[in-house]
């Protein structure tokens, strides 16, 4: 299984430099639909789906490998190595940002700069650290996903397996965004929302831009400030955008902020 197929890697644009986009929990590379095209003239852009989401190869999912974010970071490193990337720009959203952080620690030559949109090294409160959620609240999410897994179950599998006799499944997939395999989504949610990568932040050597929204329920401004404080080489930019997905709700502002930094 090539990493291209496994992670549904899409390379577009042209330019001497490369920009790699990593999506977070709950969606797929469509997340970058309003942002990535803006860089295609200057950069080669690389988009991919984390295994278990979008057009990734579901059969490649391995619950042991992906039992923590390190498995996802290994995938990212492999994608970059396959593309022979050095000194690329990494743009990651939400947990995708943390996966990029881990990849840059594993292979410091890959990324020249990191752009982290709504990053959080830990979602559950811990002493003085305010992650924003109690472990009960995270359990509530995981239980919700567990109880609802039939609601959006199996819709992706037949389409992925290429049912030639049911082309409407392919159509449905093409027109759908943020499709998740139910079982993997629950695992990914658990791995994401119970992760604690606070100690990895200090190991980041690359200059890092943190883009923080206000009123972000998933990754609060306090968490953004914590990430900024922990990564010595970081710059924190507060966006006017609100919510957790400025790459969707305020793409122009995000593009502008990235462009100014890289």
């Amino acid at each position: 299984m090539s990493v291209y197929r496994r992670n549904n890697v899409q390379v577009r644009g042209s330019g001497a430099r490369t920009m790699v986009f990593g999506h977070g929990f709950g969606c797929d590379q469509h997340m970058w639909r309003y942002v990535a095209p803006a860089f295609e003239e200057e950069f080669r852009t690389v988009l991919f789906d984390q295994v278990g989401t979008g057009g990734s190869d579901i059969a490649s999912y391995d619950s042991v490998k992906y039992a923590d974010l390190s498995g996802y970071a290994d995938d990212l490193v492999e994608i970059c190595q396959e593309l022979q990337l050095h000194e690329a720009i990494f743009v990651g959203h939400s947990v995708g940002a943390m996966i990029g952080v881990l990849a840059s620690v594993k292979a410091p030559d890959l990324f020249q700069k990191l752009v982290l949109i709504g990053p959080s090294p830990r979602y559950i409160d811990d002493g003085d650290y305010a992650g924003g959620f109690s472990s009960d609240q995270i359990d509530e999410l995981l239980e919700f996903l567990g109880n609802n897994h039939m609601g959006w179950a199996e819709t992706i599998a037949p389409a992925i397996m290429g049912n030639a006799d049911r082309p409407e499944l392919g159509e449905e997939l093409k027109d759908s965004f943020c499709r998740l395999d139910p079982v993997i989504a629950r695992d990914f949610a658990r791995v994401t929302f119970t992760s604690d990568n606070r100690t990895d932040l200090q190991k980041v050597a690359a200059p890092t831009l943190i883009l923080q929204c206000s009123d972000d329920f998933v990754a609060s401004e306090a968490v953004g400030a914590y990430v900024h404080q922990q990564i010595p080489t970081s710059t924190l930019v507060q966006l006017r955008a609100t919510g957790h997905c400025p790459n969707l709700s305020a793409p122009a502002e995000v593009i502008e902020a990235i462009r100014a930094y890289v």
């Binding site: 509530e140 999410l141 759908s176 965004f177 943020c178 329920f217 957790h244 997905c245 969707l248 709700s249």
Partner: peptide, 19 residues
């Protein structure tokens, strides 16, 4: 609920933005 809201923010809302 908080659990659902996390899911809403990360999946439902992006779907509405994209489609």
């Amino acid at each position: 609920t908080v659990g659902t809201r996390l899911f809403y923010e990360t999946n439902f809302a992006p779907q509405l933005s994209l489609g």
